[in-house]
Design a protein around this nucleic acid. Structure first.
Lengths: 152, 152
DNA sequence: GTAAAATGTCAAGTTCACTTGAGGTCAAGC
DNA sequence: GCTTGACCTCAAGTGAACTTGACATTTTAC
């Protein structure tokens, strides 16, 4: 049951339905992000639920998550069937947290940028964003100030 | 005046003060993002204001702006002296706009993600983020839905 | 004046996320 | 049954942003 040939999609079909290039699908498979069965003639056949897995990858990409990170979360997901609602909830929570972090970073940057326009540092003498030199040199080598702000 | 040797920095000094690797400074120079004078022995000597230019590059990087884009804005900036307050204001405005766009994109994504958790689509049956298959296939080939949402 | 540290050039390597190409096989329609 | 389109593998290429290495020269310090 639910094993009739119609249930399996060719790589071309998957590509058309997800908008992901065939070469990219091959690539994802080489990373273990997706999987396929093979016909006797060695052609890939995808179960339908693989479309969901692929769309999860696409979501992650939109979130700016690297495939390596996707690999990590996917390790906690069943490869041979649809993730459960619980899995999905866990994933969305995780990703939501990462989005929040990203947003905070942007907002921090925005504050610094606006501060530079709004305040007296238009002269670029004491701008928090621009000041990378002299005084800071005493703090030792390596990146700082900009990175420090990032870490904060 | 203001031409005494103390006024010129070696790559090592610039690297230490900006936190940018020497190899990266070479690279930036090859792209025309920064410039240097040379000693009789062909070693680089940077005027002090080059530190500001470099910190502008660092700011841009934090904003997720590519070096190519930085090149474009830098084309409108004097290479041989400090950018004016006007230049800086123009730049911050431009970058601020780009930050805003990025933030909006994240917020859009966040809404979709939260919608997926909060609403009935926990079942993953009609999730806006996840639905890449079947019904959509009728809309023709190529990426869509995810990209469409992005464009919206 | 010489040894050590800093610097120079240039080519090649690295990572990410794929794409392209070559050369060959498989499956579907007529 | 055969042509055409879809598919296969594997190696190499792409572009961004650098880094690493090899080897030569310069500058600084003692």
């Amino acid at each position: 049951m639910s094993k009739d040939p119609e249930d399996r999609l060719t790589v071309g079909e998957v590509s058309r339905r997800t908008g992901v290039a065939i070469s990219a699908l091959h690539y994802y498979e080489s990373l273990g992000l997706i999987a396929s069965e093979r016909t006797t003639g060695n052609q890939r056949r995808y179960p339908r639920y693989m479309l969901r897995r692929i769309s999860l990858i696409l979501v992650a990409k939109r979130l700016g998550i690297s495939l390596t990170e996707v690999q990590h979360v996917f390790d906690t997901l069943p490869l041979d069937k649809l993730p459960t609602a619980h899995d999905w909830r866990r994933l969305s929570r995780l990703w939501h947290t990462q989005l929040e972090a990203k947003k905070r970073e942007i907002e921090q940057l925005e504050r610094e940028l606006m501060g530079c326009i709004g305040c007296g540092c238009l002269s670029m003498k004491s701008c928090r964003l621009l000041n990378v030199d002299d005084e800071l040199a005493e703090l030792g080598p390596g990146p700082r100030r900009l990175d420090a702000a990032q870490a904060a």
